[in-house]
């Protein structure tokens, strides 16, 4: 069974949910999927389907990068850490000094994206700094 067949439900859902710039390529036995989902819940759903086909994502035959279209400048973002505070840093990188914290589940504002990984945000206290995008989810 080809990888495209194995992950057919995932690819079909990404397409039907209106994922922009959807790219599906197979390279060296790995299916690379990328695109921009219209909402955060579409992204969550795609990761759920991926996890259903490949429990706990352990096969290593997919690399999926789904960005969220609503994560634009000025957007409200929820801090989705497990339970701890999110570090807000002076610059983009964990070697940068921590200048503030955003609480778990706090709503912050996206100022700009330095990269896919590091976003400049403003906390509810008005503190501006860089935080890692993996813990930030656009509020719908």
């Amino acid at each position: 069974m080809s990888l495209q067949d194995k992950y057919k439900e995932l690819i079909d859902t990404a397409r039907s949910a209106g994922t922009n710039n959807l790219q599906v390529n197979e390279r060296e036995g790995v299916l690379h999927i990328s695109g921009e989902a219209p909402t955060g819940s579409v992204k969550d759903n795609l990761w759920s389907i991926y996890g259903k086909i490949d429990p706990n994502y352990l096969s290593g035959d997919v690399v999926m990068d789904i960005q969220v279209a609503t994560a634009v400048e000025g957007a409200k973002l929820e801090v989705i850490t497990q339970s701890s505070n999110l570090n807000v840093r002076r610059g983009p990188g964990t070697d940068e000094p921590i200048i503030g914290k955003a609480a778990h589940a706090e709503i912050v504002t996206l100022i700009s994206k330095h990269s896919d990984q590091w976003w400049l945000i403003r906390t509810k206290d008005g503190q501006e700094g860089y935080a890692h995008a993996q813990y930030l989810k656009p509020v719908e």
């Binding site: 390279r27 060296e28 036995g29 790995v30 690379h32 990328s34 990761w47 706990n56 994502y57 352990l58 290593g60 035959d61 690399v63 999926m64 990068d65 896919d116 990984q117 890692h132 995008a133 993996q134």
Partner: peptide
């Protein structure tokens, strides 16, 4: 895994 995939590696081996 979501964060690592965002770095566009060739593969993420979690075996």
């Amino acid at each position: 895994k979501q964060a690592l995939d965002g770095l566009h590696p060739k593969r993420v081996d979690a075996s």
